[in-house]
Amino acid sequence: MKHKEHRLGVSETNLVTRHIALVTPVETTRLNAAIAEIDQLYGLDEVTFDEKSAKLDFSYDASRLCIDCVEEILTNHEIQPKHDWWTHFKEGLYRFVDQNVKDNARREPWSCHRTPPHIRK
């Protein structure tokens, strides 16, 4: 199995891939500026735009970033995600998973097979 090197600040354990369909037509200069700004986020692994399907594809460490960070940049550049039910459903799922990854990254792993702290010698 081939191991891929990730950018600084990206842990493969917390790596997630997201796809956002954008409202078309998208102005190329705004899109390029938004992608350049998204590409500078700490914790982002990669970002690409598929012109054929008008989808923004990106991967990031969910313990450091969330989908809201990317959507904020898109909004600042006046680029909007599609407003259909499927896109809204996926965004809600992405937010849930991102928050779950963040919460789990902060906690110490627990095991029911470990001796309780007050019994340890």
Rank of each mutant, 00 (worst) to 15 (best):
E71A: 10
R18D: 08
E51W: 15
M1V: 13
D98Q: 02
K121Q: 09
N100C: 10
R95P: 00
E71T: 09
E5L: 10
D98C: 04
N100D: 12
R120I: 03
N76I: 05
I38Y: 03
D98R: 01
T29H: 14
L44M: 05
C69S: 11
I67W: 01
F96R: 04
T115V: 13
I35F: 01
W85I: 12
E71S: 08
R64H: 12
L15M: 06
V47F: 02
T17K: 11
L44F: 02
S63K: 01
A33I: 05
Y42S: 09
F58A: 01
I79A: 01
I119E: 06
R120Y: 07
T13Y: 10
L22N: 00
E27L: 13
R106F: 12
H118T: 05
E72T: 11
N14F: 13
L44H: 01
I67A: 02
V97S: 03
R107V: 06
V70N: 00
Q80L: 12
E78W: 13
N14L: 08
E51D: 14
E37C: 07
P81D: 05
I73A: 03
L56E: 00
I73P: 01
M1P: 07
R64W: 13
Y94E: 02
T87F: 07
E71H: 09
V10Q: 00
R106P: 04
